[in-house]
Amino acid sequence: MMGQLLASQFFYNWRRNLSAIAGSAIILVCVLIVLFGPLVSPQNPYDLTQLNLLDSYKPPAWIEGGDPRYLLGTDGQGRDVLSSILYGTRVSALIGIAAMLMACTIGTTLGLLAGFYGGRLDAFIMRVADIQLSFPSMLIALFLMSAFGTGIDKVLIALTLVGWVVYARTVRGSTLGEIQKEYVQAARVAGLRDAKIIRRHVLPNVLTPLIVIATVQVGTFILIEASLSFLGVGVPITQPSLGLLIKNGFDVLFSGLWWTSVFPGLMIMAMVFGINLFGDFLRDELNPRLK
């Protein structure tokens, strides 16, 4: 399996594409943070017993007055910014990935049904999608969050409702193409029921373009969640994501205490940038028209 990958054209092109390598490296770092962040974190930022109010607003270690224990400084509660970022990245990334998985599942299912059966079902699903697409996704998410209230579960639902459309449309399009093909007709001649044809034949053949969408969407979701949290309608204060960290530091940003929100901001930027770089590479690789 590994040998196959190393010998493939995909890997060959990857090795010759600097931005793909950079994107992959950033993603790898993020994955490591998600997996091992709490283990390497100097402090548990939520354990109040580890906090010392006397250490509040310490600047980063390389600036005068900095404390070598707090590499990126501390916030108003004396919380280590680096530790907050390690924990917050985890929250942000997991929300992005989980919401993407939910949106993908729901969108793919609806897209398959719309494309396969057509008619009124198709018209209904696609009109809902069209209406939703005519509003900015941020606006919809804000509206939903105001209606639901805050909480990680609410954020997930809002992001899913925002994100399913793109899968539904893509999958519907590919499904329309696939069901014209003779292998689907062959499955009918073999006597398969619709559900089996969709599951065994259509689904595996419409997944490839979703890889790109899903990758880029994780980045988009991280940004939307950060915006929601920044506006105070996102994750609760007890499980701060990167967006909430920015918000917490934002009040004192112009008092010269910039580190509390700039570092989480850089982290979001790096993560989304990496995801988009890699997503662009995937798009070029998986787009058959460019080959």
Partner: peptide, 22 residues
């Protein structure tokens, strides 16, 4: 379904008539 055991079909396009993922 039982009738399909008596009647099967061969298709025109050798590329499109086989599911590429099977």
């Amino acid at each position: 379904l039982p009738v399909r055991a008596k009647m099967q079909m061969i298709f025109q396009d050798p590329f499109a008539s086989l599911n590429p993922r099977q």
